[in-house]
Design a protein around this nucleic acid. Structure first.
Length: 607
DNA sequence: GCCACTTCG
DNA sequence: CAACCGAAGTGGC
């Protein structure tokens, strides 16, 4: 267990320490949905005891214990760093923090009514529609792991994300149903049809959650936001028989928090008023904010930040302790700022496509290869469905100890076919087998990143297909509306789109002619004749190596990237980007004294 | 670019 | 007996 490097000091664990860590570990084992609704009446102490007893000794448990130990060490370092900072003059950091806060404040927009709509125990609710008798018993959906459970089950401490055998320990009479995704998708579509009447550009956050901007609807119908939401919720309940909860606020971040406030079948509003917002945030546990998970919660707790109001007094420390992005994020939490722009998810650009599969422990190399084959085939289907090729291929494995490793490679050309995926993944796997003698796996995954679109037509700058007929109806209204939004650039865009399409067609033809076998391109490369083929570093497609044509093409690809970038940049106010962030530092063997050696480091106190 | 890690639903 | 999956993002090196 103990690694040979300098980690030994940090990781050494005495029985006393294990005793101390038991509480944090139990907390960890409770799982991520602790803050979810429906748990208030539950005796958490008893629940965590049962989970702890059910888990003890398993490999999963040991891995969680290890993680918890590492986090505890990390937190001790944070505490020390904080103490050290307190003895220093932080006037500069304080001024910088205050400048940023006032800069943020000037971006505050109170003119919009943003709402977050969340279906109550969605999968369970849909199942109860088909089988009303289930309403009176504790019930959950999901096989190995629960995806949803009804509110009766939550009374027992059962919750989503929990292993079903643990849930059955907590509630032996729990009824478990297999999930029927098509059924939920169909019901979700009914609900979305209604939501679209209130905001045609609404943003689906998942199958059972959405953000809407109802400002226009309120104006047009001369109604207040609460009245509108009440009406919409009634309409949804009446026509789809599913109850939803909603939060109403000036931005998405607060609306999301508010939707949890009166769950189930309720709504909550935080007024578009600076004082009301600040007061609401002041008492709000940081854990309730989207983007603060179990780890960050504990890290913040260690410096005395439990509620968003606690952020302000610590503002001078945050950048050095957690990094710039985390500071900015926390500043927005303190002020209660968030994005007001709600847009269809279809406008987001996909970054990766991947698939993974969990199985019982496998050590046999041939069996592992067979799994890799299978995963490669699954990914090929996903790649063809989403119409992408990947310039980078990532192999992911989970060892029998639950430790996760990833390895990546950049194949000579963008890949999407199972044959290629397997070919380029295999060396990474064999290398791992060499590094880890007797490697046993419980999960294998492949993911393509650095994507190249293989869509043939109708690609605009947002990566939305506006021409293809198979686009579903909701997406279509969104797309056309989105296109209208950029109206001023219409002519330019149409021309550019045509240009891209022509180019794509040409490229498609070229890459067809080029053939796909290694041998061909290799011989051509070595010949270095007029016919030699080279790959464009941007789009990764084969090109005839006529210098002029090739260079023109690369320029074209580059300019296209720039245009895309600009189009994206203009879509969001930098000050209000609210991407959930993660500040991650690996606890390495590097001693914490190294920070004094390198004054250039931004984050003085870590590594 | 590579990798570990966190977070979300 | 027994703990998911897919995607996105951050940050260190």
């Amino acid at each position: 267990m103990e690694s040979p490097g300098g980690l030994a000091d940090d990781k050494q664990s005495t029985p006393v320490q294990d005793e101390e860590n038991r509480d944090t570990l139990k907390y960890q084992l409770l799982g991520p949905s602790l803050t979810k609704a429906g748990q208030d009446a539950v005796d958490q102490q008893k629940v965590s005891e049962i989970i702890y007893e059910a888990s003890k000794g398993s490999k999963f448990f040991n891995h969680e214990q290890e993680r918890d130990r590492n986090l505890t060490v990390k937190i001790e370092r944070i505490r020390k760093a904080k103490a050290r900072l307190e003895s220093l003059d932080l006037a500069h950091d304080l001024r910088r923090a205050d400048e940023y806060l006032s800069e943020l404040e000037s971006t505050r927009d109170l003119s919009q009514y943003v709402i977050h709509v969340d279906c109550d125990a969605f999968f369970a609710a849909v199942e109860e529609l088909d089988r009303p008798e289930l309403r009176t018993v504790p019930m959950a959906v999901g096989k190995g792991v629960l995806t949803t459970c009804n509110y009766l089950a939550r009374k027992f401490g059962v919750r989503s994300g929990m292993a079903s055998f643990v849930a059955l320990k907590l509630c032996p009479q729990l009824v478990l149903l297999p999930q029927n995704y098509e059924k939920y998708t169909a019901k979700a579509k009914e609900i979305r049809t209604i939501m679209a009447q209130y905001d045609p550009l609404f943003e689906s956050a998942s199958i059972d959650e959405a953000y809407l901007n109802i400002t226009a609807y309120c104006d047009e119908n001369d109604m207040g936001p609460e009245e509108v939401v009440q009406q919409m919720r009634e309409e949804i309940l009446e026509t789809t028989k599913v109850s939803v909860s909603a939060g109403i606020a000036a931005n998405a971040k607060i609306a999301k928090i508010a939707s949890n406030q009166n769950k189930p079948n309720g709504q909550f509003r935080v007024a578009n008023d600076r004082t009301a917002i600040m007061e609401f945030m002041r008492e709000l546990p940081v854990r309730k904010v989207n983007g603060v998970g179990r780890v960050f919660e504990r890290e913040l707790g260690s410096i005395g930040v439990e509620k968003c109001g606690d952020i302000y007094p610590q503002r001078a420390f945050l950048t050095k302790l957690f990094g710039e992005k985390a500071f900015q994020f926390l500043a927005q939490c303190y002020l209660g700022l968030g994005r007001t722009k709600i847009e269809p998810v279809e406008t987001y650009e996909r970054k990766s496509v991947g698939t993974e599969t969990t199985f019982h422990e496998i050590g046999d190399k041939d069996e592992i290869r067979a799994k890799l084959q299978w995963v490669a085939q699954e990914l090929e289907q996903d790649m063809s469905r989403t119409q992408f090729k990947g310039r980078t291929l990532v192999l992911k494995v989970k060892l029998h100890t639950f430790e996760v490793l990833t390895r990546q490679t950049s194949p000579p050309r963008a890949v999407s076919l199972a044959k290629d995926l397997y070919t380029f993944a295999l060396p990474m796997l064999t290398k791992l087998e060499k590094e880890i003698p007797g490697m046993k796996l419980r999960l294998l995954g492949l993911r393509c990143t650095n994507l190249v679109s293989t869509k043939k037509a109708g690609i605009n700058f947002f990566g939305v297909s506006a021409v293809q007929p198979e686009v579903v109806s909701t997406a279509k209204t969104h797309t056309t509306a989105a296109d209208h939004e950029i109206g001023a650039e219409e002519a330019f865009e149409a021309a550019a789109r045509q240009e891209i399409q022509d180019e794509m067609n040409d490229l498609e033809q070229l890459s067809q002619e080029a053939g796909n076998t290694n041998e061909v391109s290799e011989t051509n490369e070595s010949n270095d004749t007029q016919q030699a083929q080279w790959e464009c570093p941007i789009c990764c497609r084969a090109q005839i190596a006529d210098d002029r044509i090739f260079n023109d093409h690369v320029d074209f690809c580059l300019s296209r990237q720039t245009i895309r970038q600009v189009a994206q940049d203009t879509r969001e106010t930098p000050a209000q980007t609210t991407a959930p962030f993660n500040r991650k530092r690996k606890p390495t063997s590097q001693s914490s004294s190294t920070f004094e050696a390198d004054p250039r480091q931004k984050r003085l106190f870590f590594q």
